Amino acid sequence: MQSICVIGGNRYFGRLLVERLRAAGHRVTVINRGSTRPPDGVEHLVVDRDDEAALTAALASRAFDVVIDQVCYTPVQAAIAARAFRGRTRRYVMTSTIEVYDPKTAALPFVPHGTPVPEETVDPAAWRVSMDLPWHDDTYLAAHYAEGKRQAEAVFTQCSGFAFAAVRSAHVLGGGAQEFTGRLAHYVEHITQGRPLTVHPSVVPTVFVHYEELTDLLLWAATATDFTGPVNACSDGLFDVRDLGAVIAARTGREPVYRAAAPGEAASPFSFDRHYAMSNARAKQLGFAFSRTADWLPGAVAEALAASAAPTR
Rank of each mutant, 00 (worst) to 15 (best):
M1T: 14
M1F: 02
C5I: 03
C5R: 02
G8M: 04
Y12F: 15
R15T: 05
R20D: 13
R20M: 10
R20T: 12
R22M: 00
A23L: 04
G25M: 02
T29F: 00
V30F: 00
T36I: 06
D40E: 14
G41Y: 03
V42Q: 01
V42F: 03
V42P: 00
H44T: 02
T56R: 10
A57L: 05
L59D: 01
S61V: 07
S61H: 13
A63Y: 11
V66S: 02
V67R: 01
I68S: 04
D69Q: 11
Y73V: 00
P75H: 01
P75V: 07
A78V: 06
A78H: 07
A79R: 15
A81G: 15
T89Y: 01
R90E: 15
R91M: 11
V93R: 09
V93D: 10
T97W: 06
E99T: 15
V100Y: 07
T105H: 12
T105I: 09
G114E: 02
V117W: 03
V117N: 03
P118S: 06
T121M: 00
V122C: 12
D123M: 04
P124S: 12
W127D: 08
V129W: 06
L133T: 04
L141H: 12
K149Q: 11
R150S: 11
V155C: 04
T157A: 12
C159W: 12
C159Q: 15
F162E: 00
F164E: 09
A165P: 11
H171T: 13
V172F: 10
V172D: 04
A177I: 03
A177D: 09
H186T: 10
H190F: 00
T192V: 14
V199L: 08
V207C: 13
F208E: 05
F208C: 08
Y211K: 12
E212G: 10
L214Y: 05
D216H: 02
L217N: 07
L218A: 05
W220I: 08
T223Q: 03
D226K: 11
G229V: 02
G229H: 01
A233R: 13
D236Y: 11
D236Q: 13
L238F: 13
F239G: 09
V241I: 09
R242E: 12
G245T: 05
A246I: 05
A250V: 08
R251G: 02
T252R: 05
A261M: 01
G264T: 13
E265G: 10
A267G: 05
S268E: 10
F272Y: 15
D273F: 07
Y276M: 08
Y276L: 06
A277Q: 05
S279W: 01
N280H: 12
N280T: 09
A283K: 07
Q285K: 15
L286V: 12
R292M: 13
G299K: 07
A300Y: 04
A304W: 02
A306N: 10
A306P: 01
S308H: 14
T312K: 15
